[in-house]
Structure formats: C-alpha cells, structure tokens
Nucleic acid binder design. Structure first.
Length: 697
DNA sequence: TATCCTCGAGTTCA
DNA sequence: CTCGAGGATA
C-alpha cells in the first residue's frame, strides 16, 4: 500500500470520527440531533469497515471503541490526584441563611466585600446518582474512578467509556493538558423503568430505584453489560487541572489555593466544560444572597417530580473562585458550598409488626407497622401491603429493614425489603385463619388475591365500615358521622344496620362521648336530609359488591325505582350497559338475602324514600360522548366540581388515560396520568381551556 | 381468546 | 394513586 493512500485513509477516518463525535455530542449532550438514526448508523458502519481494513489506524478514542475491553476479574483501586470531598448538608432555611451570613462575613474580613445584592452563588441540582471522577490527558479520557472514600476509588474506566454522553476526547483545539472532571453518573426515570421492564421479561433482577440501577450498572465487571444500560453523566466540579500557557504547563489545583484558574468563577468553569463537550445540566443559576437561593430551592422543589431524573436537593457554591479559596475548608467539606436537601422521598426503616385490617367487604389487608420514619415531609408509621401475595413478592418479614417511599402520591408504600439486613429472628407473615375482629372463618377464593372474613355483617369491623361507607360524601352524605362515633354506636349495640341510623334521636346522641348538643343537632339535620336520597346514592350506599358509583348510576337510570331494581332478574340486569354476569349475580344475590330485605323494609319504615332525579338536562352538550381524565389540582375547581361541570356538558370522567380519552385536564402537581397522556398523544388542557370548551369563561 | 378500557376497592397523615 | 378484575370488543 502506498503511503499517500494510507494518509488519505487516515484523514478520512479522522474526519468520520469527528463527525460521529459531533453527532454524539448533539444527541446525548445537547439533546438536539441533526441527523437521523439511520444516517448515524451508516457513518458508524463506514468507520468500522475502514478500521477493520486498517487495524493499525484504530485508536482508543474512536467512537467504535466504547465497548472494547474484556471483562475484569476485579476493579483496580485508583488514588485521586485531588481528594473528592463531600458537602455539608442543610435542611432548613435558617441553615442556608446562616451559611450566607458566614460567607459574607468571611469575605468582608478578607477585604472581599460582597457586591450589591449579597454574595454571588452558583446554584445547581444535587443529582441522586454516583459521584465519579474522569481524568483527561491531552484531551483523551484516560481514567475514570468512583469516589470511594474520597482518597481512593475504583477504576471503572472501561465502564464509563460506554456512557455515550461522556466524550472519549474533549472538543476544541485548546484542550487542557490535564483535566479531572467531577460529576454524577445517573439514570433517568424513564430509562430506569424501561430497563426494569426488560429485566423483568428476562427474569433478571429488578432494581429498586434509578440510583441503585445506576450503581449496579457501573459496578459490572463486564463492560458489555454496562454498555447495555442507559447511563448518563453530568459534570459539576473538578480536581486537578493543568493548562499550557505561553508554552509552559501551569498547575492548577483548587485545593492548593493556586492563583489563577482557567476561568474566574465556578459558573465560568462549568461553561468551559460545556465548551469542551462535557455534559453540564442546564438547571443552574447565578444568584445573589440567601433569599434568591431559597427561591431557587422552592422552584426546583416544585418541579422535582417532573424532572427526568431524581435529585435529592440543590447545591449552592460561592461563585468567585478567589472567594472560595478565602473561605477554605473545614474537615472534609468546603466552607464555600452547601447541599440544601429536600425531605427524603425514600427512607429505610424497621417493620415492627404486620397487622391485619378488615375492610367493608371483609377483605383482610396486611399492614406493615413501621418504626416511625420521616419521608416526603410526613412521619410514616403504617404502610399497606395489599395482600398475601404482595407480602410474598416483596418478601417482607417482621423485623426486616425495608425501603419506604411516598412517590408522587401521598400514600406510603413499602418498596422492597433488604434481606441483607434481616435478623435471624425475623418472622414470616401468616394470614390468620379466623377473623381478628369477629373470629369467623377466613377464606380465600381461587383466582382471588384477597382473603376475606366470612362473617358478613355479623362482623363488627364490616358493620362499621359499611356504615361509614353509607354515610360517605358520595353516598348518603351524612356529615358528622365519623369513625369515632360509628365505633361507639356499633360497640354499644345501638346501631346494627343502616336502618337503625334513622331511628336515632338528638337526646340519645348527646349521651355519647364528644357529642355536644350542637353536634347532635347538626348530625340529626344531616340524617334528616338523607331520608330523601337520590336513588343512585341509596343504591351505592347499600354497599353491594361490584356496585360502585358508576354502576349505581347506570342501574338507577335504567330501572328508575328501588322496587324495579329489587324485582329485576339477572337477565333484566344484564340489559344495563357495563353490567355483566358477575355484577348482575351480585346484585340479585344481595336482594335475595332475607337480611338485606329486612334492612330495606326497615329503611322504608323509617321514612327513607329514594327520589329518582330526572337528569334530562337540556341545553348545550359540548362534550357529548367525550371522556376526560382529571389529574393534579386545578386552580379554581375541586375535582368534584370539575366532574359535575363535565357531566353537565355531556362528558364522562374516567380515572385512567387511554387512547379513547379525549382530553386530560392537568393542574398543579399532575402525576403519572400526564406522562401517560403524553406518551399516547392525548391532548392535555388546563382548567382555563376546559372552561372554554364548556362554553363558559 | 387476547387485549383494551373502565370500574371498584383499599389506603395515609394531619 | 394503584392494582385487580369485570366487561366489551376484535
């Protein structure tokens, strides 16, 4: 081969590499690709083919060489040229104010008077991932290491090379001779979920959270596995830096207090990293004084759940590097920076016991009694475990340490147990064979997840729950009949069924605890109003299995009176839309039960008479035939109000998003339904748009 | 029969 | 909100 040929091939290869690097940068770092995946693949193929033909021209920084290394036996340890420090934490606003005050005083004492508006800071996100250090020499990525104890970490170069957003060589012609970049490796929530889906399909281990998934992926001895995991990287700091100046190599080490860094402020440094092609997160601000820092914290906190990745707080750093040097370090952490943490969304705690609750339908629900733990802003002591299978699946035992979460939602959830921390005397949960409240037999039907108490209304727990259900807002709406009072009424034997409620007198009520004359009168008035319920409300209040709000409404509208419903055969019932064999049989069985007939007779005797409201509301029906889904908190309407308005306009409100959903109405702190809507391409509107659709401004 | 769409039921803390 | 399960539909 002629040497001229080789040079032109080498030039061609280099040009291809530059082009691919640029596309990589645009795709993985800037998130704005300019070529199709197919075009990108074509370039990669062309490069591979050329390299295959000229193996001598392969260099380690070639984009084809991300996954090259063979599996390791173990990780080598690496000593960091400059220690990787940790940050002091702040949880309260006062601590942040104190931090700002200390900085202002410290700088003033050194003659560095803060500018107008206070000390300048760089505020950034605190990613919930793994801290790593990347070492570039002459622009080439030569080493990547975990944080370890701060002095010494593990060599994870082969794995980090597979992370697409980490450049194998720095961009630009003036790269530093040495640059140690510090940053965080993490996984986005979406990537995490997708990874777990494939893991589950393959029967592989499912990860508890994105952080663990990222940690597990980074600690693979086989880089090919890491390459298949969707990891990301964000740069936020640095260790050793050497830059050539006037032909001389200058050494810059922040900790040594060296005079001049390549750029004078922390934010300039991050901008410089971005110019070198390193991923730097956009959510960073230059701010002045404690008030602006706290406002940033609030703002990020409000957006936390909608960020693509998990963060556990924000970080404030004094922006002037000269000022950072003046403030210096205390013990392991810099004085010029602080991590302002959000309340943890996930915590570990101890399962002290697993109790059992009896629901309205007799379902026995295991509940983990937890050692109180502060998660997501509240102290959690109980968490449902749903059913026996769930306890098995999560392998939660009494005495276990578990991970507890309050995700997007309010309700605490046991995410997983940590078997490694299990004591020898940990006990497995056994579903009791008899009801803990009434002692009746417990049965679990085949193909059902729930175990049920067979005691029916003989069981005090079920009686109480059915009364509470009947009094609830969507049923008879009896205000003032709370859990405590129901307990007393049932325990005293005064109220055995729904009908007994309507024979109560104010005088009688006053005898119960915490029942003054005023409360008793209010309750009597609420009971009085409940004597004329809409038919669908009464039907719902009866608590027939499989008959909820919607079915009660459909059945009421179809038959028009309680007598007609009671007289309907299973076949008649099947004619109602959305009523199938199971629901029809359940309704028929309820009214065949002599005890239930007695209760209804007693209700009628007590003057309870349902009215069938003709809902034949004329007028405009702009949402006729449309299904809407509500999520989050609307600015002016409650969920119920919005539902009423939508129904009045002929629309339906459903609880879950599907392709048939016409609109998703999203308010503040919208949850997973918003994401689902976006993935299905369903139109998302806000309250104002909904009002416009309803024809009211 | 499989798949999608809804509905029902249970649930925490302040 | 999420899961389980019933009902409708292809």
């Amino acid at each position: 081969m002629k040497s001229g040929d080789t040079r032109s091939v080498a030039q061609h290869i280099e040009a291809l590499r530059r082009e691919i690097d640029e596309h990589n940068h645009r795709y993985y770092v800037l998130d704005e690709p300019v070529v199709s995946d197919a075009e990108y693949d074509r370039l990669m193929k062309e490069l591979s083919a050329l390299e295959e033909a000229h193996p001598d021209l392969i260099t380690p920084d070639s984009p084809t060489q991300r996954v090259g290394a063979a599996p390791l036996a173990a990780f080598d340890s690496v000593r960091h040229a400059v220690v990787m420090r940790s940050l002091n934490n702040a949880f309260e606003a006062d601590e942040v104010r104190a931090f700002d005050r200390r900085n202002a005083e410290g700088l003033a004492a050194a003659g560095l008077l803060p500018s107008e508006g206070g000390v300048e800071y760089m505020a950034e996100l605190k990613f919930d991932g793994l801290a790593v250090s990347l070492r570039y020499e002459a622009g080439q990525l030569v080493r990547a290491a975990t944080r370890g104890d701060g002095q010494t970490g593990e060599d994870i170069t082969a794995n980090v090379r597979t992370i697409r957003s980490v450049p194998l060589r720095l961009k630009g012609s003036e790269v530093p001779d040495v640059l140690e970049v510090r940053g965080e490796v993490l996984m986005t929530r979406k990537d995490f979920e997708r990874l777990n889906e494939t893991q589950q399909k393959r029967g592989d281990k499912v990860f508890v959270n994105p952080r663990n998934a990222a940690a597990g992926s980074l600690r693979q001895l086989d880089p090919r596995i890491t390459a298949s995991r969707p990891l990301r990287f964000f740069a936020y700091g640095w260790g050793e830096i050497r830059v050539r100046r006037d032909g001389q190599v200058d050494l810059f080490r922040q900790e040594a207090g060296d005079a001049e860094m390549p750029r004078p402020t922390h934010s300039d440094m991050l901008d410089w990293f971005a110019e070198l092609g390193l991923p730097v997160n956009d959510l960073r601000r230059r701010l002045k004084g404690a008030d602006e820092l706290l406002a940033f914290y609030e703002d990020i906190g409000a957006r936390r759940s909608s960020l693509p990745f998990e963060i556990d707080g924000v970080v404030y750093k004094v922006n002037q590097l000269a000022a950072q040097d003046v403030l210096g370090y205390v013990a392991r952490a810099p004085r010029y920076a602080v991590a302002h943490k959000f309340p943890a969304q996930e915590e570990t705690t101890l399962v002290e016991d697993i109790g059992v609750q009896v629901g309205r339908t007799g379902a026995l629900t295991p509940v983990a009694r937890l050692q109180p733990v502060f998660v997501g802003g509240v102290t959690v002591t109980n968490a449902t475990l749903h059913n026996e299978d769930e306890v098995r699946r999560k392998d939660v035992r009494i005495g276990d340490t578990v991970i507890v979460r309050r995700a997007g939602d309010v309700i605490p959830e046991v995410v997983a147990s940590i078997p490694a921390l299990r004591p020898d005397d940990a006990r497995e949960f056994r579903m009791p064979e008899s009801c803990p409240v009434c002692g009746s037999a417990v049965e679990r039907l085949e193909d059902e997840a729930a175990s049920r108490c067979t005691g029916g209304l003989f069981c005090a727990a079920q009686r109480k729950q059915s009364l509470t259900h009947a009094a609830s807002r969507k049923a008879l709406d009896i205000e003032g009949l709370g859990e405590k009072l129901v307990d007393q009424l049932v325990d005293s034997g005064r109220v055995k069924s729904l009908a007994d409620l309507f024979t109560l007198t104010a005088l009688e009520l006053a005898a119960y605890e915490r029942m003054g004359r005023k409360s008793a009168e209010n309750l009597m008035r609420a009971i009085e109003e409940a004597r004329k319920p809409a038919l669908e409300r009464l039907l719902y209040a009866l608590g027939i299995r499989h008959v909820g709000e919607t079915t009660a409404r459909d059945v009421s509208a179809h038959f028009g009176s309680l007598d007609a419903i009671m007289a309907a055969s299973e076949e008649d019932l099947l004619a109602v839309r959305d009523v199938g064999p199971v629901v029809a049989a359940s309704i028929r069985r309820f009214f065949d039960e002599p005890h239930n007939r007695e209760i209804i007779a007693a209700l009628q005797k007590a003057g309870v008479e349902p009215v069938h409201q003709a809902v034949a509301r004329q007028g405009k029906q702009p949402l006729a035939g449309k299904t809407l889904v509500l999520t989050g908190t609307l600015p002016n309407w409650s969920r119920d109000e919005a539902t009423r308005h939508i129904m009045a306009a002929g629309g339906k409100v459903s609880g879950s998003v599907s392709r048939k959903t016409a609109y998703v109405v999203a308010g503040e702190e919208a949850g997973s339904k918003l994401e689902k809507a976006e993935s299905l391409g369903v139109t998302v509107i806000d309250e104002a748009k909904l009002r416009a659709l309803l024809g009211r401004e």
